[in-house]
Amino acid sequence: MAGASAFHLGGDHAHRFESRAATRETPLVKWLILGLSLTFFVIFLLMPLIAVFVEAFRKGWETYITALVEPDALSAIRLTLLAAVISVPLNLVFGVCAAWAIAKFEFRGKQFLITLIDLPFSVSPVIAGLVFVLLFGAQGWFGSWLSDKDIRIIFAVPGIVLATVFVTFPFIARELIPLMQAQGREEEEAAVVLGARGLQTFWYVTLPNIKWGLMYGVILCNARAMGEFGAVSVVSGHIRGQTNTLPLHVEILYNEYQFAAAFAAASVLAVLALVTLVIKTWVENRAAQSHKDANRDDAS
């Protein structure tokens, strides 16, 4: 996620650029850019999304609902939520710690550490699943020890959670690091000099500054956690009603020729993605708002 810090203070900039002659394009160029970019947007983003919903409702509402209240679907939804609920807080704590250490202190090998944190992001999901098989599979490093103790990691819930944690590992840290670096450390230093303890400093000084970025990181992390397919597929075992997550359930239904049901399950994931994006927009608006307020306070 290096630098794909998608979190930006919303607000409409168009007016600033459109109101000045020097930053305006001729209408022809403007419409060309708009036309091309929006066509691109429609073909590559909007159409797939619409396709999911059209296919989901092809056989009507009833089929749609039936597909979702079926016990296997419900258990898949439960497992998906469980994996997200565990992996997001873990990565949240990690993200805050890592950002604190990296943004507020200087040490050698920092760039290298950041690159290591980024690694899961560009590792193929297939490899992400494979590593846990190598570690915890019956033929893996801890395989015989685990089987003696009758602990199941892969082909059970813990393996799915582990794979999810791995895949979503960098999201929050990567959102916070640039943000906290940009904010510098003067405010925290002042607080400490004035006698605040470490956690107090974090809670009352740092957190208010980073809360929106933090929230955005959590949202992205959560979205990815619920949607992961490749890595989870390798470690799941595909036991119906037990180790199937929602994305895997989609694949199963698709393979059972239940296309409407498959797309219905897919649409749940799409809705989750959309809700995520709505929350994200809201968060950005709030952030922009508080940013503006802060500026006004400074001015007065």
Partner: peptide
């Protein structure tokens, strides 16, 4: 009775790797 389905080779590999 619970079911797990997938490509035959993949399923065999899962059992080798510890799918019970």
């Amino acid at each position: 009775v619970r079911q797990s389905h997938g490509g035959s080779g993949k399923q065999a590999r899962s059992v080798i790797d510890g799918l019970e």
